[in-house]
Design a protein around this nucleic acid. Sequence first.
DNA 1: TTTCGCTGTGAACATTTTGTGATAACTTTT
DNA 2: AAAAGTTATCACAAAATGTTCACAGCGAAA
Lengths: 234, 234
Amino acid sequence: MEKKKVLIIEDDPEITNLLDIHLKDLQCESISAADGKTGYDLAVAEKPDLIILDISLPEMDGIEVCQKVRASQKTPIIMLTAKSEEIDRVLGLEVGADDYITKPFSIREFTARVKAIFRRTKFIQESLSEDASQIIEFEGLYIDIEKRKVLKEEERVDLSPKEFELLVLMASHPGKSYTRSDLLKIIWGYDFDGYEHTVNSHINRLRAKLEPDMADPKYILTTWGVGYKFNEEL
Amino acid sequence: MEKKKVLIIEDDPEITNLLDIHLKDLQCESISAADGKTGYDLAVAEKPDLIILDISLPEMDGIEVCQKVRASQKTPIIMLTAKSEEIDRVLGLEVGADDYITKPFSIREFTARVKAIFRRTKFIQESLSEDASQIIEFEGLYIDIEKRKVLKEEERVDLSPKEFELLVLMASHPGKSYTRSDLLKIIWGYDFDGYEHTVNSHINRLRAKLEPDMADPKYILTTWGVGYKFNEEL
DNA sequence: TTTCGCTGTGAACATTTTGTGATAACTTTT
DNA sequence: AAAAGTTATCACAAAATGTTCACAGCGAAA
């Protein structure tokens, strides 16, 4: 099946970039606009399969964009709102968004919503239907994402929330290196303001629970000068 | 038997999401629309096996959608009405809806109605007829859902309504973690506005009645940072 | 009405997780 | 080999999360 096209209308480049990365993960092609007017034009011209729309935008308000888009097409729309109060406004105006996400949001939440929309609107892609088998396996390592269960050599290991998220993210993309900054953005949220070396500690604790030999990690490898990655040769 | 397709026409994404999740539990595939017009189009194009239709909708009123759909097909329709709209309820029925549910409703009520519709309309699915074997057993624990009877080591235990519902829900899906928010939505209803920590108290009371050792729960486990789950290793 | 059990909440307490600083260990560069 | 830059480790306090318990409001049953 061909890739789905997603239009991101968002004025914060930081966020646009982040969403862009994760949409690619979901096998989506993405295009973006930094203001409402351009966004609307692109929505008309490009006929995307999904629109991610921030509420507060320069040039044309997100709600207005939503209404105008809806007047001519039924492309699913996910709205991003800064405060929960704004949701009421969206709902009240009955603009017809298919879902909304309040900032700050976690990437897991975002991708889950996107997948849900695609599932519901019938644009099911092979790669998206991974929801079924949420189990990742490697030599001596078993991860059941749904149940949050991790086994190391048949033995149950319990991980803290952050440890679990780190493991799942990296194990889902073996070989892909993440910088500490990537990890902070993805797992802690793009608004986290703390030190990057916080990640080190978490990786360290995760390794302590998973690795048979701390001196020579088997699963979570260090990419010197870059960050960390899950071993792809397993 | 193949999956049943359910179309949700509802403008509140929160509710759409919730229904979506529980329809999946019932082995149904769901598609959705956030406004009446799109909803009607999908009803025609996708030929769903069941339509969940909110009465108040943007673009095209739920009643109108119902009438138009009924003009061309006999797909079962369940209407959702807000409490105050007593009048609309009658109207909805005259229009030919097969059932109606007034908001706010509990998820148990919703799934029961959906099952009933499928049963009535002869779309009986293996997975839906789980009503038959309503007995769950684990080491030292026996639950007869039908009779609302719970035995702990052969001894009868009586549970309050909420305790019983919590137990049944979780024991029906061992290993699956539920967040406090999930539990509130499913058991208390999506409109419950109270504190999440209310769940803690109920879990606590339930444990007090079930667990042989409170310090080390055997049945109801805590998933730190997430919520609770029923022990799958029994 | 009175009684009684169920519920939601607040508060005190217990536990786990997490961010950070300090320091050691390791790589690369000079 | 020393210096500079990165990563690993570890202990600790603060923050987040869970547990327990008492109590008052409520509604149903007696």
